[in-house]
Nucleic acid binder design. Structure first.
Length: 578
RNA sequence: GCCGAUUUAGCUCAGCUGGUAGAGCAACUGAUUUGUAAUCAGUAGGUCGUCUGUUCGAAUCAGACAAUCGGCACCA
């Protein structure tokens, strides 16, 4: 079944869901519901006092299957706005839709399921409800009408449908498998990090192994940036509120900041972003056009009081580390800086196994600062950078920051949720507000253009996505513990320790498991910890000066001389070429 | 923040309609010296998320709060 047909069928399944809801919950109002990439959902305004939970889904599903079993046709009818208003006279949500349809001057179409249920819909739909072969309801959630938190919250029912029972089953199995790659689960199993909901909700406690990966990411990025002409700075974590008022962030995001009053009556704020600090460094001394572009990086730890409901493992936290940088340049340099940064980001993602990166260009929002000319220029610079490299992108109309347009680089987690990682943002706000300048060739003061960019975005989030994408099986260079030496009996401990020492001398991160356990137990334990290389040593290996290795995810054994093995692993453990 | 669900031992989870808690794994002790995903036995381990109420009696019922999970909204 092609994507179009599948989508049509899912949309029809959503109509069947709506009808089932009308059967089971008299007085319910159907608001809207589309097919999505993975299934469909329906938003309902439930009668007063009715609460829907996942326990109710089987019952609704059963009702849906009854409707499907009637094999009635789904038929399209076109009618006038007035007729439609009458047909849906008790449903304010449909009236709302009709207003929009009327305003756009479009025709009204409805779809009948048999002759018992009708919904306002553009279509298309399957010919008969029996064309819906396998349907499953998945979850219940709240969702605001028209996606606006000022509106009423409706009850959303998520489900999916497939062309066959088998495909549905495969999909559900795939989801189950994907959940095993959840970084929160793997983080625990691999002993990488934990959270303390009681003391610091949304903040990470990095354990030794997790922090090793974290440091490795920074080490990689630092080298990358040095090679690409960046300098690195470090700015204070706590600064006077006045700074954030000057930058404009206090007014817009004040309630999301952590702040406190000191004895002298000043209000200090823990930095929610690094940019003003960077601008202050730029402001030291007089800058010449010869100093530009000035690429100033900072691995800045920032704190934001994110809404409780938005927190999610490492992906959305209240304390995170940005691989931030601010590029100060002349307007003429703006576009070429965008081009090189864009290329840099995608190069870096390749090193981590991400080939398929979604890019959004987010354009001017309604509430914004700066003249339309500057917006035109900035948006064009970003779009040109994309076109220059022939990158595909989507436009996110009106989703830019209040101070400028941005590019967002999106990676997906194990179950396909999209997360913004890298970003390039034009800023027409801060240079003004902090009145920074450079002396041009003409000897006059000029305003530099400022670009914010983060490549990983947040180290925490990027690491979370890495864990999920590798299912915990990190490449050797990123693995916090690369080798585990496992002697078969305690008889061999001396050789195991000598092997361990040689591994460490070669710069590999290794440990030995000298516990009094069977080799199969050790294999199991350390495989679950996702150690990439398990090095088994027994009497044979000791005698021959060899080791037998087993790679994570493989059952193959390979025996080779220790020296040769170390050389091979050392080579493999190298960071990608910078 | 909003909607729904969940919160019991280090981890994964059981505990019916109220009568002061249970399993497996992990830990510890002992035995076992083992060739590629769990060797056996024993011991110990819990203010049942927090607080307040109802009750002779609360893991269980009610309320508030917190956190977590799935969404929505938000994301400088």
């Amino acid at each position: 079944m092609n994507q179009n047909d599948l989508s049509t069928m899912r949309h029809s399944a959503e109509h069947v869901l709506a009808e089932a809801m009308y059967h089971l919950y008299p007085g319910v109002k159907m608001a809207m519901g589309p097919a999505t990439k993975e299934g469909f959902y329906g938003d309902f305004d439930l009668p007063e006092g009715v609460v829907l939970s996942t326990e109710d889904l089987p019952k609704i599903e059963e009702e849906m299957n009854k409707i499907i079993a009637t094999r009635v046709p789904m038929t399209r009818k076109e009618l006038s706005v007035a007729e439609a208003r009458d047909l849906f006279k008790d449903n304010e949500y449909k009236q709302d839709w009709l207003n929009e349809i009327e305003a756009r001057g479009e025709k009204v179409s409805v779809y009948w399921t048999g002759d018992s249920f009708v919904d306002l819909c553009r279509g298309p739909h399957v010919s008969y409800v029996s064309d819906i072969k396998a349907v499953k309801l998945l979850s219940v959630a709240g969702a605001y009408w028209h996606g606006d938190s000022k509106n009423k919250m409706l009850t959303r029912v998520y489900g999916t449908a497939f062309g066959s029972k088998q495909e549905l089953q495969d999909y559900l199995t795939m989801l189950e498998e994907a959940k095993k790659r959840d970084h929160r689960k793997l983080g625990k199993e691999m002993d990488l990090f934990h959270f303390e909901p009681e003391y610091a909700p949304g903040s990470v406690f990095w354990h030794d192994k997790g922090y090793k990966i974290y440091r490795k990411l920074i080490e990689y990025m630092r080298k990358k940036q040095e090679k690409n002409g960046y300098i690195e700075v470090c700015t204070p974590a706590v600064m006077d509120r006045v700074l954030w008022e000057t930058s404009g962030h206090w007014q817009k995001y004040g309630e999301h900041n952590y702040s406190g009053k000191t004895e002298d009556g000043r209000v200090f704020c823990i930095k929610p972003m690094n940019c003003p600090g960077g601008v202050l460094i730029y402001g030291q001394g007089i800058k010449s056009y010869r100093d530009l572009p000035l690429r100033m990086a900072e691995f800045g730890k920032v704190h934001r009081y994110e809404a409780s409901g938005s927190l999610m493992g490492l992906m959305r936290v209240r304390e995170f580390t940005q691989d931030d940088a601010h590029i100060f340049c002349t307007p003429e340099q703006m576009e070429s800086e965008c081009i090189t940064t864009l290329k840099l980001i995608l190069d870096i993602y390749k090193d981590f196994g991400f080939e398929d990166v979604k890019i959004y260009l987010s354009t001017r929002p309604e509430k914004r600062i700066g003249s339309d000319e500057i917006w035109d220029l900035s948006e064009k610079a970003l779009a040109n950078a994309l076109k220059h490299n022939n990158y595909e992108f989507e436009i996110n109309e009106g989703e830019g920051a209040f101070y400028g347009p941005k590019l967002e680089f999106i990676l997906k987690d194990a179950i396909g949720r999209e997360w913004q990682c890298g970003t390039i943002q034009m800023d027409m706000n801060l240079p003004e507000r902090f009145d920074i300048s450079y002396i041009g060739e003409d000897g006059q003061r000029h305003r530099p253009v400022m670009l914010h960019r983060a490549l990983f975005g947040s180290i925490e989030r990027f690491l979370g996505i890495l864990i999920e994408n590798y299912a915990g099986k990190l490449p050797l260079w990123l693995s916090p513990q690369q080798v585990l030496v496992a002697p078969i009996t305690s008889e061999i401990n001396d050789y195991a320790e000598s092997v361990l020492q040689q591994l460490k001398d070669a710069g590999l991160s290794a440990q030995a498991d000298l516990s009094n356990e069977k080799i199969s137990y050790k294999i199991r334990e350390h495989s679950l910890e996702k150690i990439p290389v398990i090095m088994v040593v027994g009497a044979k290996e000791r005698e021959n000066g060899t080791v037998t290795i087993r790679r994570i995810g493989s059952e193959k054994q390979e025996t080779l001389p220790l020296k040769e093995c170390i050389d091979m692993l050392v080579k493999e453990a190298q960071m990608p070429k910078i």
